[in-house]
Design a protein around this nucleic acid. Structure first.
Lengths: 201, 201
DNA sequence: ACCTGGCCGTGACAAATGTCCCGGGTGCGG
DNA sequence: CCGCACCCGGGACATTTGTCACGGCCAGGT
């Protein structure tokens, strides 16, 4: 029996996937969590063979948790399952040592098969997505540029961002201007969207 | 057998829900679509008893489709199934004649039971959500204010919005300023987020 | 030792944005 | 008929935002 941990925030999705995987004769869902900061604890307790992680979770990113599992539970293979096939997400997933990357589009049949292939040591990635990730190149934003962009979601003003990062307003403006230039956009909002689409957030 | 139509854009979610509902002895999924503009056609063809619709779909909103089903297929009960329990969504769903409103959190067990209750003529709504929708009051934005806000997502400039709405830049600024005032926010971005959270978009 | 690149800041400037006036037109209900 | 709300626009103004040029600090590699 393949022991699977499931991390997904939407209750209905989580329950549905658990039932689906449980119907497979060789698969057993041994843990379910709805928050990113519960993943490592649950994995240490349930000792799964495969961890199926969403990226955008409350509390902690699934990507961060994946990196931790690499050291805390080295014999657990990690599959990333996410809504958005963003190049930067795929790149970060691979760097975090994930064994595969699935998008929530695509048929359900993929899922159980991906779990089996991950356990066999194969790497499972959508080829088109891999090409996009490669052609997009790495994240050109520096750490602070990323911070400033991330802090500017949901309409924060320059003063807000400066306060939350403990920086001068001038500095924040410089970082944002630089980020706008690197993303080839015209203002903060476009830069945020562009960076998100690439998975650079 | 209860005949169900399923409209949901995420392939994995759609497939999982279809399999789940299909396992119920008294439920049969007779149609699945991934786009909003295919709902009415599919319903006329498959004659479902219950239509389970996501709101945010490519091509057409599930709420718009629900309103059409009211006249095109009057004996088909509509259940809205959505990620976000936004008060405005619930309000619009009720106005479109929906028989129920489910959020994708919450356990899977709710789902089949909601389908049965809808068919029995009951209205199925989360009480807490209903209270929030009532206390929030109706949408205070005028049509044009909504248009201007909606056109200002993803970082369009005033000039872009004016062009896309065939208006003067002054007019657009006035609408946006008014929308910012009504939402109690400080700028476009915050106004957009506030309006979205309320389901006013 | 030198150069590079990230980090942090300043000052000045143009452009975009938000606010507050004002005007006119329309349609709807009292 | 009148008031009212929505629609559309203009002008003036303060504020915010984005850009550019310039400094300094520090760590890294050559």
């Amino acid at each position: 029996m393949i022991r699977v941990l499931l991390a997904e925030d939407q209750g209905m999705m989580r329950g549905a996937l658990a039932l689906l995987l449980g119907m497979e004769p060789d698969i057993e869902v041994v843990a379910q969590v709805g928050r990113g900061d519960e993943i490592v604890d649950a994995a240490l307790l349930a000792r799964p063979d495969v961890a199926l992680l969403d990226i955008e979770l409350p509390g902690r990113s699934g990507l961060d948790a994946a990196a931790d599992l690499r050291t805390e539970a080295p014999d657990c293979r990690v599959l990333i399952l996410t809504t958005f096939g963003r190049p930067g997400y795929l790149r970060r997933a691979m760097e975090a040592g994930a064994a595969g990357f699935l998008v929530k589009d695509g048929p359900v049949e993929e899922l159980a098969e991906a779990v089996r292939r991950a356990l066999r040591g194969e790497t499972v990635i959508d080829p088109a997505l891999a090409a996009a990730a490669l052609s997009a190149g790495p994240n050109p934003l520096t750490g602070r540029e990323r911070d400033a962009l991330a802090a500017s979601v949901d309409g924060a003003t320059i003063a807000d961002i400066a306060a939350s990062l403990h920086l001068s307003e001038s500095t924040v403006r410089n970082y944002l201007s630089s980020a706008i230039g690197k993303t080839g956009t015209r203002n903060r909002m476009e830069a945020v969207r562009a960076a998100r689409r690439q998975g650079w957030l």
